[in-house]
Design a protein around this nucleic acid. Structure first.
Length: 425
RNA sequence: GGAGAGUUGGCAGAGUGGUUGAAUGCGGCGGUCUUGAAAACCGUUGAAGAUGUAAGUCUUCCCGGGGUUCGAAUCCCUGACUCUCCGCCA
């Protein structure tokens, strides 16, 4: 959420941020509502103060048995004015709030200005030893491989639930589980994260806190009867762990990692990448979440990306790093790196991770603060999160890059102690 | 699903419709004492907002929302959540 004080003090910076994020500039509207609001508060507080004084006198008069009827009339007329002012104030605040909660975060100064995904900047490319973009033999895609070895069954997944709900079978299911466990163990034991196993259904306050509500309503599944939402990412429950709480400075940074299934309606992308695992309604993801001091958040973002990269380097799969341009940033993010892994059969990069710094945007919505020792004051923390990583597209990359000319699939070395087998097929 | 109890400051826990932002204890912070620490003692200790250069002043907040009243943490209605017992159940 936008801080109205920031807008008040830096209207031009707020305006520029919105424009660079392809948003409508509503800064003037905000400023005039804000001014109106403050004027009303000033007047109403004064009236309330007067009324409180008179009421106190009523108490004193009644104690001594006097007649207070005259000044009781005074409090009534003050009360009427206060009610009218309060009503107007609530309306102005509602309008202001309605705009504020729908405004996206502003990009960090280091983010390249751009309109769409085409303006994203590739900042790094990592290829395993001996890798070549020219396939030495015709690569089967993950759907063909899944069928050949009976490890992925999209038809039956569709029968059970609908399209976009993949069914993993046999060694495919084991490989999926191995991948999840390998990623969790790495982050816990080597990168210093504490493990969380979160609820998969959350309430609307949690969805608001991380910024999914109100703007992303159409992308989420909803369980209306119970007012719950299946999570689109573990970011939601994990970030909301500290909603409405105050942390101590000594606690920071807090680093959590958790596995969850992720549920997405993908309402705006029907007909796009519908093949197999490329875009699904349910997938598995290991998510890293950090709560840090504001001055540390950008170095923590770089570390977060490295933590995700470590997984890919251990798996020995080709990937590249993109710095998203302003226009491609998600609603809540101030800066974001995407990690894309290579699909030799599709001959393209697949987004497997997204690592973002939200600065105080989510903390302000979710009211997550810490007390700074030096000043003794409460400040909003900065929150970050990154996929470490999503298994679905990573699985595509693994299956396709680890296939042999005979169509077998070699299990990446680091996963073997988790799978108990070295080859599929 | 049935029955009951509860929700107050960082935590525990009082609270008579009228100096209650809220007793008390613990914790935190500052100090005395001590070589240092502990103990003891003394003091201090919520948040948000408006206004002001500042000191300060004012407003709001005792789970949420409505109501009664000149005045509500306290009375009434309503919602949410938590806990206990019974039933059902992985």
């Amino acid at each position: 959420m936008f801080d109205i004080k920031f807008v008040r003090e830096n209207p031009d910076a707020a305006r520029e941020g919105l424009i660079n994020k392809n948003e409508i500039d509503r800064v003037d509207e905000l400023l005039s509502l804000d001014e109106k609001k403050r004027k009303l508060i000033f007047e109403t507080d004064d009236l309330k103060s007067k009324k409180n004084q008179v009421s106190a006198r009523v108490g004193q008069i009644k104690k001594t048995g006097g007649d207070a009827s005259v000044i009781i009339g005074e409090t009534k007329s003050l009360g009427d004015k206060i009610d009218a002012n309060d009503k107007e104030l609530r309306e102005v605040e509602a309008k202001l709030e309605d705009i504020l909660i729908r405004l996206p975060n502003v990009p960090h100064e280091s983010v390249p200005v751009g309109k769409s995904a085409e303006d994203n900047v590739e900042t790094k490319r990592w290829l395993p030893e001996g890798f070549s973009f020219d396939n030495e033999f015709e690569k089967l895609d993950h759907i063909q491989l899944g069928k050949k070895h009976d490890i992925l069954d999209f038809e039956r997944g569709a029968k059970i639930s609908g399209s976009g709900f993949p069914l993993y079978k046999g060694k495919g299911a084991t490989l999926e589980r191995a991948l999840i466990n390998f990623m969790l163990d790495t982050h816990i034991n080597q990168h210093g994260y504490s493990e969380i196993f979160p609820p998969f259904l959350v309430n609307k306050e949690s969805m608001f806190g991380t910024g999914q509500l109100p703007k992303m309503q159409d992308d989420m599944y909803t369980i209306e009867r119970d007012e719950l939402y299946p999570i689109p990412t573990a970011e939601v429950p994990i970030t909301n762990i500290y909603r409405d709480e105050n942390l101590t400075e000594a606690q920071l940074p807090v680093k959590f990692v958790g596995f969850s299934a992720c549920f997405r309606r993908e309402a705006a992308s029907y007909g796009k990448d519908t093949k197999g695992l490329l875009r699904v309604h349910q997938f598995n993801k290991v998510e890293m979440v950090k709560f840090v001091k504001p001055e540390d958040s950008y170095t923590e973002l770089e570390k977060l990306v490295i933590d995700a990269e470590d997984i890919l380097q251990a798996l020995k799969v080709p990937y590249r790093l993109l710095m998203l341009c302003s226009g491609d940033l998600s609603f809540a993010a101030a800066k974001c790196y995407d990690i894309e892994t290579w699909s030799p059969a599709e001959n393209k990069w697949l987004e497997s991770s997204s690592c973002s710094n939200f600065e105080a945007f989510q903390a302000r919505r979710a009211n997550i603060r810490f007390r700074r020792e030096e000043t003794k004051k409460l400040e909003f923390v900065h929150t970050l999160n990154g996929s470490g990583l999503a298994t679905s597209r990573l699985m595509v990359t693994i299956l396709e890059t680890y296939q042999t000319p005979e169509g077998k699939i070699i299990v990446p070395e680091v996963l073997r102690k988790y799978t108990g087998f070295e080859v599929i097929g």
